[in-house]
Amino acid sequence: MTPVLDVRNLSTQFMTRRGVLKAVDDVSFTVGQREIVGLVGESGSGKSITGFSILGLVDPPGRVVSGQILFNGQDLLKMPPAAMRTIRGKRIAMIFQDPMMTLNPVLSVGTQMIETVQAHDRVSHTEARQRSRDALGLVGIPSPEERLDSYPHQFSGGMRQRVAIAIALLHRPDLIIADEPTTALDVTIQSQILFEIKRLATEFGMALIWISHDLGVVAALADRVMVMYAGRIVEAGQVDGVLTEPRHPYTSGLLSAIPAAVPRGEPLRPIPGFAPSPLSRPSGCAFRDRCVRATEICSTEPALEIAAGREFRCFHPHVERAA
């Protein structure tokens, strides 16, 4: 079965005054049909820009400089803007991080939903409104008919995120990119939204890229996980495997920093140091000044190794436990 999304050697850069900033650096991955893929990494590692690159929404001075983004076999990077617009919101939808900022404050929720329906389908206002109302109902917003006439400021953060999800669902896209959709929300609401999105993705057979800085969230949700560091994917594989047997030192570092993954009684050990400034990353493996396993060779570029459905970039990976 061909994957929904096949990203090959994607590089996105920002031409800043202080130099070229490699936000996404030679990233390749696929997302299968109905697959839920987690994209994990610290803040600034390039997760959002990866998502925006797929949708062609990188703002200047940023630019996708190379690669291919095959969506159902078609390269989105070669698509003219008008055709790209018919993909956005229709075949690929995105949910943003901060629900307080994603809805236009001066337009009613109904307007913002109806326009989304009518941007892609030539339907009457009444029908568009009906579809919008149904979508609101689907994501668990009470009395959706009345809520269509409400404005964003009349909703709580969690409810606004539900509205954003409803908008993403309007056209039953093949792929939803959810960019840390729960990060800005209360913990209790986080798990509700998490559950809701997973349910809907499964129900409608949509593929999902779930971006998060929290491995724990991804563990609960995803089939596969990709770990991103300094613009690169440093490890990828099935969730179970990656979480129980990380090969890359950065992944194991992330794991020993989350409570759920550390055996009771053992201390949490956050990764020492900070991610390098994206303008002055060390040559070779960008993780090397924080890595306990680093040696001289790490100042050269580690190649991508692929073994047993696992990919990683490291000269000294953790050894595989004997099966």
């Binding site: 949708l55 929404l57 993909i87 956005r88 919101g89 995105m94 900022m101 404050p105 989304t116």
Partner: peptide, 15 residues
């Protein structure tokens, strides 16, 4: 223009 809701509007496929 740089606000999130404009980007979201683009992501919805609006003209």
């Amino acid at each position: 223009m740089p606000l999130d809701f404009v980007k979201f509007a683009r992501a919805k496929g609006l003209s």
